[in-house]
């Protein structure tokens, strides 16, 4: 059973996977509750575009190009959404598909060695030493922000008007959340894939909200669900050859979401009786 850890690439995948799962869950709760879920989706596509362009231009570590680009995109997407314009969601969809198109176009030019399949659906083998360092730093940062400012994060998420009235600089929190999300997505998308990473942000929070009715319990439950799905997905894809890890993790998320939904119906039903 534990021979899985005799492969160093699996150990790397476990470390990065679990850390990214924790970050995705924590940030996802805020993003989902603030109705910023689309930002996560948009960012993964921008990340794909940036990684492809960086690879074509032969940068040794495309990550260093993708990170600042996606952070910048996070800031802009946030601004678009914050202003509450009617077509904010349309603007995000536009940006995602454009970035995706640029990525695919660039990757298809003759003479490049980009593996589209790997970018779209992720691969355990894409995880390197760099990713471990970045994900450790990122997780420490996300956890520190969450623990130190937990109450303020709650206040800003729940009622921005009141938070601003009590002197909290809400835009700082919004920018911090979107920049951290940007880093999480860029690191996570290479393992889980462009098309699947946003599921990791949205699913745990939504799943937890089926059963948990307090903010703190939603946060804790999201982390547990998220980490469980990543670990289960990694084991499954290791023991069933050729099963892509990203898709497996998303399917686990879906299964738990359905399970929690059923449980919430049962709870409601039994309460009525």
């Amino acid at each position: 059973m534990l021979d899985i850890f005799s492969y160093s690439f699996m150990v790397n995948a476990f470390i990065v996977g679990v850390l990214i799962a924790v970050c995705c869950a924590l940030l996802g709760v805020v993003l989902v509750l603030k109705r910023y879920s689309m930002i996560g989706d948009g960012l993964s596509h921008v990340g794909f575009g940036a990684l492809s362009v960086a690879a074509v231009l032969n940068f040794s570590t495309p990550l260093y190009i993708a990170l600042p680009v996606v952070m910048l995109a996070a800031y802009f997407l946030l601004r678009i959404t914050e202003k509450g314009r009617v077509n904010a969601d349309a603007a995000i969809a536009l940006i995602s598909s454009s970035a995706l198109a640029i990525g695919v176009f660039v990757a298809s030019i003759n003479g490049t060695n980009i593996d589209l399949q790997q970018y779209m659906f992720g691969s355990i083998l894409a995880v390197g030493q760099n990713d471990i360092i970045i994900s450790v730093v990122l997780t420490v940062l996300v956890l520190a922000v969450y623990i130190l400012f937990y109450n303020k994060i709650f206040a800003v998420t729940f009622d921005e008007g009141f938070a601003r009235a009590t002197g909290i600089h809400t835009s700082v929190y919004n920018i911090a959340v979107s920049v951290l999300t940007a880093v999480t997505i860029v690191v996570g998308m290479r393992m889980l894939g462009t098309l699947l990473i946003s599921a990791l942000i949205i699913f745990p929070a939504l799943t937890s909200m089926r059963l948990c009715k307090r903010f703190i319990t939603v946060v804790i439950s999201s982390v547990i669900v998220s980490v469980f799905c990543v670990i289960a997905g990694l084991f499954t894809s290791f023991y069933f050859d050729d099963v892509p890890v990203g898709a497996t993790i998303v399917i686990y998320n879906l299964a738990i979401f359905l399970l929690f939904t059923c449980l919430s119906f049962i709870a409601k039903f039994s309460k009525k009786k």
């Binding site: 109450n151 008007g161 009715k213 307090r214």
Partner: peptide, 25 residues
Amino acid sequence: YLGQKNLVSKDFPASVYEIVMSGFL
């Protein structure tokens, strides 16, 4: 401050106690 019509989404998971305490921020 008690703002005009709270914009909290319908299914926001927060207990009364959590909300009351956020007044101390």
